[in-house]
Design a protein around this nucleic acid. Structure first.
Ligand code: FES
Ligand code: FES
Lengths: 144, 144
DNA sequence: TTATTTTAAGACCCGGGAGTCTGAAAATGG
DNA sequence: CCATTTTCAGACTCCCGGGTCTTAAAATAA
């Protein structure tokens, strides 16, 4: 079971792809879908959501494409994932019970809430800028 | 997006339900499905998998039902979840890339692997006995 | 034996995420 | 103007996890 959806995975990979670009030029969906082996049309839909959320800036027509709408240091993983799959990530009960919280905790709440908070913090603190830097420094991969 | 599947959630809740029973009597699927508001037939399928995995012992016929096949102190959350949804939990890349590992890490591997290991450890160390004890002591809930 | 209660097993269905396809609209270059 | 390249928008199909249903088999009680 994956922590995030396929859509979020693709959105993160695309954001990293754009941020890792040295120049500021726009990147086309066509190029990203080819380089990372992701369905062009499906990736398009995901990036549209991120554009509407104000994370990306799009330009149509020849020489068009997508670029970051904010400095890479301002965009966090949480921003991206939330823009793609909604806000209630990191708020759900591990056992799927309704109303996760201190008021009516399930047997695993105390233990799970602690780990969940750590992951949420990781996503909230990690910026595209930092990841792009690490990616370039260590030559990390964005595809299989 | 949930960390574990609905099937695992139900399997965990049922295991806790059985472990929380003071007496050693067998518990019927019918009772558990009613008490926790889970589909009877669906819960049956999940508990069958746990039975085949050697976690539960089943007895058919009148007065039959399910019981733990091992002492509650020997059964971990990891045992249960693995029996329900396979072994490659806690081994997958956060970005969904094939072959997660130190050899060909993705940009998030270093950060994600650390958190993933903590959760895996939590599941590996936590026993039904301990959870049942805490559940009884604090009157925690197993249903909405 | 017969009826009842329970798990075991597997076929079946359904809804939603994942992915495809078609046709626009916008921008550029000639 | 026209042709090309790109994003935008939405309808459409496919697949599988989640859930239902039916039948068999095992055990108990009368
Ligand atoms: S109530 Fe279950 S994790 Fe919070
Ligand atoms: S390779 Fe991506 S998390 Fe390990």
């Amino acid at each position: 079971m994956a922590l995030i959806s396929k859509s979020s995975e693709y959105g993160l990979r695309a954001a990293l792809y754009i941020a890792a670009r040295p120049d500021e030029a726009h990147v086309s969906v066509r190029e990203m879908s080819a380089q990372m082996d992701i369905s062009f049309h499906f990736l398009t839909k995901i990036l549209q959501r991120m554009t509407r959320a104000g994370l990306l800036a799009s330009t149509r027509g020849a020489k068009g494409g997508l670029a970051l709408a904010q400095p890479a240091a301002k965009i966090t993983l949480l921003d991206i994932v939330r823009s793609v799959e909604g806000d209630d990530l990191f708020r759900e009960c591990l056992l799927g019970l309704a109303g996760c919280g201190e008021k009516r905790p399930c047997p695993l709440h105390r233990h799970w809430a602690k780990e969940r908070a750590r992951i949420e913090k990781l996503f909230r603190k990690m910026t595209l800028a930092r990841l792009a830097r690490e990616t370039a420094r260590d030559g990390l991969r964005l595809a299989d």
